[in-house]
Design a protein around this nucleic acid. Sequence first.
RNA 1: GGCGGCGUAGCCAAGUGGCCUAAGGCGCGAGUUUGCAAAACUUGUAUUCGGCGGUUCGAAUCCGCCCGCCGCCUCCA
Length: 460
Amino acid sequence: MTREVRDLVPVDGNRFRFYCCGPTVYGPAHIGNFRTFVMNDIFRRVLEIGGVETLHVRNVTDVDDKTIRDSQAAGERLKDFTDHWLKRFHEDTAALNLLPPHIEPSAVEHIPQQITMIEELMAKGHAYAPGDGSVYFKISSFEDYGKLSRLDTRELDLGRTQEQRVGIQADEYEKDSLSDFVLWKGRRDDDGENYWESPWGTGRPGWHIECSAMSCEYLGETFDLHSGGEDLIFPHHENEIAQSKCSRGGDFALHWFHSAHLLVDGKKMSKSAGTVYTLADLLERGFTAMEVRYELLGAYYRRQANFTFDSLHAKREALGKLAKGEAELRKEVGEVEIPGYEELRGLGGFGVFEPAWDGLQNDLNTALAMGKVFVGLKTAKTKEDWLGLHGVLAALGLVLPEIEAEDAVEVPEEIQAVAEERWAARSAKDWAKSDELRDLLMEKGWVVKDGKEGYELVPA
RNA sequence: GGCGGCGUAGCCAAGUGGCCUAAGGCGCGAGUUUGCAAAACUUGUAUUCGGCGGUUCGAAUCCGCCCGCCGCCUCCA
């Protein structure tokens, strides 16, 4: 991606059209997946707050090896299975305050478009069907193959067949070259009921073709930007480029936006280490979705970020500090209602928060922007400052916690009674009894905050 | 082995040639407050950027080497 977001001008002069590789719905997404989606969300928000219209497409992969395998293991039909996990994904994205994409196409619902594209590749000599029911893309037919990932062609095993290579794990498909990838997979016994008709017999589409077919369907053969996690650069995005350019021509995506991975305690997340956290895992531990979002945007997207519970914990304090600062500023400028997202689109000035906005404009540097938000808060005092703060927060998608929430906390009668007794003891300067009752409240999970005229109970 | 990236205070994390004797958040220390605490508020917290050389008037930032770590290399965001 270009370093300056402000330099990104829609190629059609109207809406900035971008495609984001979405989830494979075979289980709950983990926080690493969400780092990518949060970064994409912020990217869109920065464009929109900056006054640019967008067209955001994010696909759903609802047919592949894993969805088929796991739906069968669960004894469910593929659609029921993927619908369930898609619903869960939507719940998670809503909790994380991700704007829903304008279009969310599913692979299963676009099989005709995928078949059409494969036929075009066949007709132009970029694909071949060796007769086993599958169709492959011939990467030697596309000169630019490997350009995005800067792969040396020597590494691609061009022209080598599996027979020539010893020790490679058995693959049922016949390919001319080891690096050729599958466009259509011939039906196999373990696919069960999950197959579709095609000119090459029954089967199902390969993974890469869905994104080429769907991005072209909704965004055309040339669009502004394509995004995804860094692991998708090769082979997924490389293959998409090959399929799209060879079948339809056009420039495909003019910009690429890849988010680096999220590590946990400095290591790649792994199931065996128990570090593949889902949003639900973190909510269960008492964190809020907004704290998680803050954690995910806390580092610059081009670098791997390190998730730790210490860092996540810090976000609660930081959000509270922000909320307090915002409330004071709001009072100072005499406003009551926080402006909504739509009102902030096309915001002209950001007051003392201009540096934070610049940070976002300059290659989506969310870490820098957050730092400048806290700096700005120290001197903010005008209405423009206040609007600027909300413009930046809206671009980051951060919703501040309510700070006047005492009413919302239900204090059990039993706890209230102990607290009253303690206050009486304290007022009578019976320090021993007062402290004893305070410890008792602490044991039961309540913290007493003493004031001049009374006290307040807060959950520990 | 090929390609790419990282190593900045206890933790997270900006900064990529001079405004850096290095943002910001958390944590921690000190003070105010408090009967003592907690909370709140104020304030302090890396003369130094993995190590060693080099380029330069000047380097956390560029180059070389070394050490450590991470990612991709056929369907993992």
